[in-house]
Design a protein around this nucleic acid. Structure first.
Lengths: 172, 172
DNA sequence: CTGGTTGCAAACAATTTGCAACCCA
DNA sequence: TGGGTTGCAAATTGTTTGCAACCAG
């Protein structure tokens, strides 16, 4: 992994790490290298990453892919990361920063897979309405937008990193 | 496959079948037994079904699972069925009825997997707004709600956010 | 006849799991 | 020390694909 000066108390990673540490302790679980590395990586990358991407970014030898899967489950349960599903059959994760911006959605280019974050969520109130209308509780929602980004619109879009939907996004 | 009286012009399945027939012809493709059977089945079942469920409902010997996967891709491309992703790693499909109700969302119980359809979509205008704000085109969206249904609430089931990730909601 | 289709099996890819070695608290 | 963790490999599961037999038009 690209090691940042993570041994100093005032390290940037201190914030999420501190929370991790204390929370893990409460669950009588451990603050291990892989877990720290994953959090550190997600702090830099501000966009959702797949487990495979995380694995690659950490340096093949540093952490096993299976461990990443296990860690993401743990971190998700603890609410430290959020799972996103863009419909291509691969899970993506983002670090949950304590403050606002916590809840947001994405605008994904179906062509180049570029991702834009949409901060304002308006569906919140709907959640309540939907819940009330059908007697459901603890209602949450998933909302993502898909479209073709400016770049891809003009350039006879070269499906560079586009690979969403195990099936071709745009039929060209 | 369970062949319904599909040779009569006034057959219930006539509506979707007729459209299928004509559209397939235009694509110089064929109206086959499996395709008719799938459409007929989706007409009855008004809820999203997984390929495996469709396969089971058609009678193991009637249509191969692979054929169902291929058919769903075709039907999806033709806009006859719509694919939904509830985040559990399994695709679900619903027949697209020509009229309204065409665009709708779901409220899924994370415990018993029961599904309620939400007809009013409010995200439509947001699509336009989001598209304009970021220069994207042909913007669409996916929105689903998750929660605990009335039945499961009392039934003791406290698995609030049951793991819909990969495995069955809650194995109890 | 003939190209689109299907069944079957093998291939794939994402994710999960069993288990022995390992390490943090 | 001991139970949570990890790496490795094998197992699962959803989905796709190669190919020869088959069928709708």
């Amino acid at each position: 992994m690209k090691k940042s000066a993570h041994s100093h108390a005032h390290d940037h990673a201190a914030e999420p790490l501190a929370e991790l540490t204390s929370r893990l302790r409460q669950k009588s679980q451990r603050v291990t290298g892989p877990r720290q590395a994953i959090l550190a990586l997600l702090r830099e990358h501000r966009h959702p990453m797949t487990n495979k991407e995380i694995h690659g970014a950490l340096g093949k030898g540093d952490c096993d892919l299976a461990t990443i899967y296990r860690s993401m489950h743990l971190l998700e349960e603890m609410g430290m990361v959020k799972r996103f599903d863009f419909g291509d059959g691969v899970a993506r994760f983002e670090l949950v920063t304590g403050d606002k911006h916590a809840h947001h959605h994405h605008l994904v280019c179906t062509c180049c897979a570029d991702i834009v974050e949409i901060d304002d969520c308006f569906a919140a109130e709907l959640e309540a309405r939907v819940a009330a209308a059908h007697g459901f509780k603890t209602v949450t929602h998933k909302l993502e937008f898909f479209g073709v980004c400016p770049d891809c619109q003009q350039a006879g879009h070269s499906h560079d990193k586009a690979k969403r939907s195990r099936r071709k996004p745009c039929g060209c």
